[in-house]
Design a protein around this nucleic acid. Structure first.
Lengths: 160, 160
DNA sequence: AAAGATTGAGAACTCAATCTTT
DNA sequence: AAAGATTGAGTTCTCAATCTTT
């Protein structure tokens, strides 16, 4: 609990260093990766995430609900984004046979092609700017950190 | 280099765990903190960042250029955001005495008041959802990670 | 020309309200 | 009523073009 002279700062300097560093890193990293991806493939990071998730799913299609959950998106965001991707013929909406309330989202041929073109370069960029800068131990710790924080957030959703 | 059956994934599972976990954590954490902050103070995380940065600066004012650099924002984003904050009387624009091209941005009384009201709750939220979930060693490693990645990105800006 | 900053248009996100099916 | 999804309005961010001062 320090306040280093006039400013507002009630984290210790170590805590602040970690927190502020994380925020800055994330912003710059996403900016860089997003621009590289868009320049080379015309896909945004969001598009990429949707296509990867769909492609990894069984049959290349997925309940919209589940897609949103895996991406960590709100339903409204997903709906708007899918609409834009449908307009660009990257995905299609399909009726869900088992539950008429539901929706299936499927990658089109065009979507698979775009992803296939974009993926090698993007993975390379993730390596270049992120993975290769870190040690195995650092990556392991980071994974633990992410798990711990997400577990806390997940608890908070309910019990709060 | 694994491809676990039809999907696109050229990171090892450890690498993927760290990378995907980081992205998810960040999204959820910012969402949670942003909503709590907005609900309690009417400030967005972006507003908060601007006010903290200005308040910590000498005289509570700062070159727009430098402000953008510290926040990691593009000049256009900063300009739009400052315009919105001026409209809400949280900051004011001032002419820069030393360079007529430049601009100074200063926190208003109202801006300081809003920040003062918002800060304790926000810092508490950062502790609750983030800092307190982690060990000292994890925080230290995270700071190192952020430094390493940012150093790489900074290099890339020029040398590339 | 380069640096500092603004502007406008378009894309993306959030919130609240709505609609359909269970 | 609850769950799955869409819609519209308002806000914020990005990109490119522009303007002013150095």
């Amino acid at each position: 609990v320090t306040d280093d002279g006039g400013g507002v700062s009630w984290l210790t300097s170590e805590e602040h260093h970690a927190w502020a560093g994380l925020m800055q890193m994330q912003g710059q990293l996403l900016g860089r990766l997003g621009r590289e991806l868009a320049a080379r493939s015309g896909l945004s990071l969001a598009d990429y995430g949707v296509l990867v998730t769909l492609t990894e799913a069984d049959g290349g299609r997925m309940r919209a609900n589940e897609l949103g959950r895996q991406l960590g998106w709100e339903k409204s965001r997903l709906s708007h984004h899918v609409a834009r991707m449908v307009a660009r013929v990257l995905v299609v909406r399909e009726r869900c046979p088992s539950d008429a309330r539901g929706l299936l989202v499927a990658a089109t041929e065009e979507g698979r092609r775009s992803l296939g073109e974009a993926a090698p370069g993007h993975v390379d960029a993730v390596r270049r700017w992120f993975v290769d800068r870190l040690t195995t131990a650092q990556l392991a710790t980071l994974a633990d950190i992410a798990d711990a924080v997400r577990a806390g957030l997940a608890e908070g959703e309910c019990g709060e």
